[in-house]
Design a binder for these strands. Structure first.
Lengths: 228, 228
DNA sequence: CGGTTTTTTGAAGATTGTCAACGGGAGTGG
DNA sequence: CCACTCCCGTTGACAATCTTCAAAAAACCG
């Protein structure tokens, strides 16, 4: 069966993405017709704060960073979208503007579905709505943990956790940080200088090893977990 | 039409709570039959971390605080549930244990619905699932703002915002803080001592007035908003 | 009213932020 | 292929906010 490139990618979205891939074949085909597909190169903006927020964006392949910009012009990293993640919760329930920026970190495929289509789809396909509820629930639990950690733990502890999470699930002991240190800093609620110092400190203590600028190796997982 | 007290409260839940009150009459009646109702006095625990998490708890009337306890035994306030709010996202998607504590701050009516019933209900009534998606979406937006603020703004600014939010929507200029300063402190990611000092500072600067231990009056809203 | 918890206040100390300068790597253009 | 530039990361010195510890005062509860 030969398909056009565009169709192929639209169905990829639906096949690849957790909130869709448990749906019935019929639903999957419906979703595929409603989805539009876009490609973004490294550094391109998927959307910006102030844009009309009328659709949900789903990462079919690649990575993108979501961040806010304060009145003073300072960035605050919120999270990194991986394949299968989506962004645009704010668009789900009201006509509004995006409050975040989303920027591709590499070549990234994004599928979008308009709020009205998505709401209709949820009405027609309860399984989708339930998937969505579950996905959002997971996200809330994670956000709560994150806020608790930021207000509770020291920078060194937060950084250690970040390294553990980022390296988790990789067979390779050597892993690459997907973000610049500047972004890691705002993600963890600190400054690039402090990140630099704490990484040195962790290395000096023998818990990690710096391979290159953004490649590291975990040497002592247990000790990293017990910081603070 | 005469009803038993218990039935009355069960329907109150359904009538009062945003995620339910837009449902069809038929759905509302179904929900009412699935809901169990409990009363908690000030200080009683609605659930504790480690409890089996198999139901969603909805506040029909009253106030309750949700908090975590760290390994070291320190509390971290997460939020205050008001009438209509619910807690138990973690229970939505998997058999697991609660990761939070929830404790009544006054006499509080709580309705609970089991995960399995709730999931069935969402399958049958897409409107409910959509309401749920919207409610969770709102919550995520709020949590993101909160984390951004904690990592970005000074304690004085966070406290000022907290006072503004807590007093918002009240006609009375004098308002009562629902939490002890200890809890406000962990909510804002600081210590009771710092809260005490910053409140004095705000009062000295003429932005607020201390009426009693936990009653305050906003004097200069504009200046409070512009801190930091 | 007695006892316990909460809040306030003070002083000292620590973690982290800020400012500034330097070094290095990546990309560009000659 | 080399030189130049720009941005990022590093390092140091200093400042500031905030935390911690301790003790006294105030509020709360039965």
């Amino acid at each position: 069966m030969i398909k056009l490139a565009h169709d192929h990618t639209a169905e990829d979205c639906v096949q690849l993405v957790p909130i869709f891939n448990t749906l019935s074949q019929e639903d999957i085909e419906t979703v595929a017709t409603l989805v539009t597909h876009h490609h973004y190169k490294n550094g391109e903006y998927i959307f910006s704060a102030g844009d009309v927020a009328d659709s949900l964006s789903i990462v079919a392949h690649g990575q993108a960073k979501v961040f806010q910009v304060s009145a003073g012009g300072k960035e605050k990293m919120l999270r990194v979208l991986q394949t299968g993640d989506f962004e645009g919760e704010a668009t789900l329930f009201s006509d509004s503007e995006h409050n975040n920026f989303t920027q591709a970190l590499m070549d990234t495929e994004v599928c979008q579905i308009s709020r009205s289509d998505f709401q209709r789809l949820m009405q027609k396909s309860p399984a989708l709505a339930v998937n969505m509820v579950n996905a959002l629930g997971r996200r809330i639990v994670q956000l709560e943990q994150q806020t608790a950690e930021v207000t509770t733990a020291s920078v060194e502890s937060r950084l250690a956790n970040y390294l553990l999470e980022t390296s988790a699930g990789l067979d390779e002991e050597v892993f690459t940080l997907p973000l610049k240190k500047k972004d890691i800093a705002t993600y963890l609620g600190t400054t690039p200088e402090t990140i630099s110092r704490k990484l040195s400190s962790l290395a000096k203590q023998g818990m990690i090893e710096k391979i290159s600028n953004n490649k590291f190796k975990i040497l002592d997982e247990d000790r990293l977990m017990m910081i603070d």
